[in-house]
Design a binder for these strands. Structure first.
Length: 441
DNA sequence: AGCACA
């Protein structure tokens, strides 16, 4: 059959709806103005303003269809058009029967609060002061701060909506206690709504954002080194000074990535001196130290974006750390100093790197830096199958991401192939000799 | 001035 490629853009006959479509509004029209406009005709139960590319459209929804009809009818025969701030507003029935409200952000209680700090000195309020203020009500997981048209704002993440709610109820509309502020600051008022966020993504511990759930993260130091400011180049992109220490984060970690696996992967590009693994933002990251910057550069170029395991699992994202020499306090399954001959006799303390200014950020807290435990979502890598028989030449290495780099020694590929792809059908590497990096042979 | 992309 032919025809019916689409609805005409503008229908001549509007099906009545209790939702009205408004256009030619001020771009910053508020919900209050919409309610004012519709109130004479009935009960406005919902609105959506600042719609469209120009933000000059809106919807209002009446409780009853007849109320919408009366508003349309009134202005259809009125000598005075509907107006907002003197601008003529054009009305028609919406082609939908109800407003689908995505604007649940400020309405629905969640564990993350959107805090607007008001006052002439609002942006001088430090993140530490905010942390102090909100910690009264429970453990603050994360804070991010940013500038918006609304002013200086912060997102404050609690573990649950109840805690967030108690903080909101107590603090909304209140001033930050003056004794918490530097003397020269004027009053700073807190306006608090719920955010739609549930888990903030904090990339760095910095003067703008904090993740208090990971105080032990060595990577936090890289962002905190110096002023905590991020170097920005002329093109506006972040500058990343090259370093002999790489920061690797592992995406899509379907399989446990062990220290040994990382050591093997990164050893292909030079003698890895030290590795420290840690949890960060729900994922796993690692710092890998080479003796010199050149090796790190080559490793980064070769490995960036590649996956440790076939199927897109455990994808590596690599950047340069600001560390130059990791301080490994203990050798365990998360951190290792390969330059020390006898690893057993090290300081029996948790694996931490260098000094730990991040510790100052929080009181004792519920976070436990547990070792990685295989779960249903992160099944442990099955042991390499025994009895694989086919010779190495018959192995299909084409699919292996490392083989694309051209930098990977063949024994790397073989070994990794033994460990990977547990469900990808018969893999038949011959019994491989233990992996030994080139420089050890 | 013409229908919501979060």
């Amino acid at each position: 059959m032919a025809s019916v490629s689409g609805q005409p853009q503008f229908r001549l006959t509007q099906t009545p709806s209790k939702v009205l479509h408004l256009r030619n509004l001020p771009w910053d029209c508020t919900e209050e103005e919409l309610i004012e406009l519709g109130k004479p005709f009935g009960k406005v139960v919902n609105t959506k303003c600042n719609v469209g590319a120009n933000k000059n459209q809106a919807f209002i929804e009446f409780a009853d269809l007849n109320q919408a009809i009366s508003m349309i009818s009134y202005y259809a025969s009125s000598s005075e058009p509907a107006q907002v701030r003197g601008k003529t507003v054009y009305l028609q029935y919406s082609n939908r029967q109800e407003i689908v409200n995505n604007k649940t952000t400020a309405d629905v209680a969640g564990n993350v609060l959107l805090v607007t700090i008001e006052g002439p000195d609002a942006r001088l309020v430090s993140i530490d002061v905010l942390h102090l203020v909100f910690s009264t009500f429970g453990f603050v997981h994360k804070i991010t701060t940013f500038e918006k048209t609304a002013g200086f704002q912060a997102l404050v993440q609690f573990s649950d909506a109840e805690t967030a709610s108690s903080a909101k109820d107590a603090l909304d509309g209140r001033n930050i206690p003056s004794y918490l502020l530097p003397d020269h600051l004027g009053p700073c008022t807190l306006r608090i709504t719920y955010s739609a966020h549930t888990d903030l993504s904090v990339k760095f511990q910095s003067h703008r954002s904090r993740d208090y759930t990971n105080p032990n993260l060595p990577v936090a130091l890289s962002a905190m080194d110096g002023s905590g400011l991020v170097n920005v180049g002329a093109d506006g992109k972040k500058l990343e000074p090259e370093s002999n220490v790489l920061l690797a984060s592992i995406e899509n970690m379907q399989y446990a990535v062990t220290l040994d696996a990382l050591h093997m992967v990164f050893s292909a590009f030079g003698p890895v001196q030290k590795i420290a693994m840690f949890d960060k933002n729900g994922g796993v990251q690692a710092l890998i130290q080479y003796p010199d910057v050149q090796m790190a550069i080559v490793a980064k170029e070769a490995l960036e974006g590649h996956c440790i395991y076939d199927g897109g699992f455990c994808k590596l994202h690599i950047s340069y750390s600001r560390h130059n020499d990791l301080s490994i306090k203990v050798n365990n399954d998360r951190s290792r100093d390969y330059t020390i001959p006898n690893p057993a006799i090290l300081n029996p303390q948790p694996p931490v790197l260098g000094h730990q200014p991040v510790q100052q950020f929080g009181p004792p807290h519920p976070y436990r830096g547990t070792h990685f435990t295989p779960t249903a979502e992160h099944p442990a890598m099955p042991p390499p199958s025994a009895g694989w028989s086919t010779g190495p030449n018959s192995m299909s290495m084409n699919g292996h991401p490392y083989m694309l780099s051209g930098n990977m020694p063949p024994q790397m590929g073989h070994r990794m192939m033994q460990q990977i792809a547990p469900h990808s059908g018969p893999q038949h590497p011959a019994a491989m000799p233990p992996y030994r990096p080139n420089w050890m042979q």
